[in-house]
Design a protein around this nucleic acid. Structure first.
Lengths: 342, 342
DNA sequence: CTGAAAGCGCTTACAG
DNA sequence: CTGAAAGCGCTTACAG
């Protein structure tokens, strides 16, 4: 009956207990759905909670129970649709399991990443899903995380880390893209974009090289062209493809962002992607289908990867997972119109 | 000197205090940078914290201090680049201010939105930044949030809510787009996409109508075409534009997603956007520039809007903001190649 | 089925 | 400058 709040202005279990005429313990049991409470008592308590507008303080409960109901998601760049979709998938699966997502973004900076992890870890997440920035220092990260919080590394391998890993089958993806170009008759095929010091780039290059070697073509180092994994930098580096004659007729791109940037760069040079130069991507981001022409690419289903990452990390939290897991998600070729036969 | 952890396995202030030979209070003062602690003591304590790998439990501190160091961000769809950029901006500014972002996504479902808000609020965020799902129930939301947590509503107005609002200058944006088409000689101009029951759609339609009326053209209800604000639905509804003769020669689209979908729909019908039908967008998402042809649109700089939202909400939290604020962000026309003269 | 008491990891007056 | 004590909002044995 008493609407007076306690000294802090915040409604607590105490207020509900007083209003319902029971002890705090009883209210707590109601909250947690215990069968110990008489059905009438439960109803009375619930009515009071609704009437007062009580909101549960999960932080206090978590502190007492020594549990956590959050998972941190550290992502390098939310403006990359691949990671945005991934984040959406993570959040979806975490929410379904009753966890809340703590978001942190690093902008591809290892220093910011360290700061972000240091800040998130103070909020005591049950686990961390980390899509590492390029050039991450595994040892420094391990120190920032400490020994008590499980980590799932996504997408880029972190050399020397003891953590779970979820990645794409990069090698097979690039292999499929390269084979597609070979089947169309291309023989001078470049690998365009990405930084060779990232594991995903190395793996994709390996798949590309495999496919070429299978048909007796040697990899030409001049056609292994690096760029930042962004549209802009890829567009800017288009010229490197045509530095030497004969130039390639096709490029397997590190990812879709790079492929779209390359297409932009080609158009600026008066070329027609899909008509006089073939391009493949990697990721199948939503705008791949909207490009002109629509981009042939490797689909990785980032949203499903996000759900999968959440599942893996929760399995680790619940302690049901065995030793550090290395999970490689399958990947498939999506043929659209950016590759002409030659 | 003692590496033994307490019973829970977790390192606490107590452990650091014992190892450094001081009281918990002293360690706490060190942690909070108090000048009361002797410099030598501070150094000794900090050395122990580093050596032991102590991590601060901010939840416990927040509970005791009755403060919160998180802000909840509720967004309807992270796979929309406009919201992904917005989220990135929010997170960037919150992190800079020492707050952590609690993420929730609603998938444009008012029911899920209620559940998400109900779950986030239990984590006691200092504030909520809410980009409401279509068809949100303001009263139900207000009940879920309670009276103690400030909310900033972004993008879509929530009728009857007492909360701060940050929106775009929708009316002016659509006005600019329509004027651009008029200046190119178009006279039969449709307004394509969006749902008329959302405030942003109504405002954009009003700007469109203003511009037409200014030059003595009446709005034709047949050319006010609704769609979900997505690429797919827009593409599917393209035909409605050509149901009657004479058909429009141009469309002001509700947003970029709709505009890109419309362009896709036009191509499927054998038309050439930018050559025989003019299209404008709204948002200037990154792929607008990559469309074929590049999309003329209204730039809203979602990342800057995210930073702005964080700032507004923090001002409210610090209590420096006066009465409920209504902030309308300026918007500008970006001319590219999707509109030909007629 | 309910109540009194202790405790999660921290902070904050208050003495000294 | 440091220590002992109380308390943030909850949960959990333990009695009854």
């Amino acid at each position: 009956m008493n609407l007076r709040k306690n000294s802090t202005g915040r409604l607590t279990l105490n207020d509900v207990a007083r209003a319902a005429g029971v002890s705090r313990a009883t209210v707590s049991l109601v909250l947690r759905g215990s069968p110990l409470v008489h059905v009438d008592t439960r109803a009375r308590v619930e009515a009071e909670m609704a009437r007062l507008g009580y909101v549960y303080n999960r932080a206090a409960a978590n502190l007492r129970r020594r549990v956590s109901s959050s998972v941190a998601l550290v992502v390098n760049d939310l403006s990359n649709p691949f990671f945005a979709e991934f984040a959406a998938g993570v959040d979806e699966a975490l929410a379904a399991a009753g966890y809340v997502t703590l978001l942190g973004s690093t902008g591809e900076s290892p220093e910011r990443q360290l700061a972000v992890v240091g800040s998130l870890i103070e909020h005591d997440p049950a686990a961390i899903i980390l899509s590492p920035a390029e050039g991450s220092d595994a040892a420094a990260l391990a120190r920032a995380v400490g020994p008590r919080t499980p980590v799932l590394v996504f997408n880029r391998e972190l050399a020397g880390s003891p953590w779970d890993f979820l990645g794409l089958d990069n090698r097979r993806g690039a292999h499929l893209a390269t084979e597609h170009l070979l089947a169309l008759g291309h023989r001078r095929i470049a690998f365009f974009g990405g930084h060779a010091d990232s594991s995903s780039c190395r793996e994709r290059r390996a798949g590309y090289a495999d496919a070429l070697r299978n048909v007796g073509i040697a990899v030409d180092d001049d056609w292994l062209i690096e760029s930042a994994p962004t549209r802009m930098d890829a567009a800017a580096r288009t010229g490197l493809l045509f530095a030497r004659e004969p130039a390639p007729t096709a490029a397997v791109c590190y990812n879709d962002a790079v492929a779209l940037g390359l297409m932009l760069g080609l158009v600026r040079r008066g070329r027609h992607p899909g008509r006089d130069f073939a391009v493949t991507g990697f990721d199948d981001i939503p705008e791949a289908i909207l490009a002109a022409p629509p981009l042939t690419t490797i689909a990785a289903d980032p949203r499903a990867r996000g759900r999968q990452a959440a599942q893996l990390v929760l399995a680790r939290v619940e302690g049901t997972a065995p030793e550090p897991q290395r999970t490689i998600a399958a990947v498939e070729l999506v043929v659209r119109e950016s590759c002409m036969p030659v």
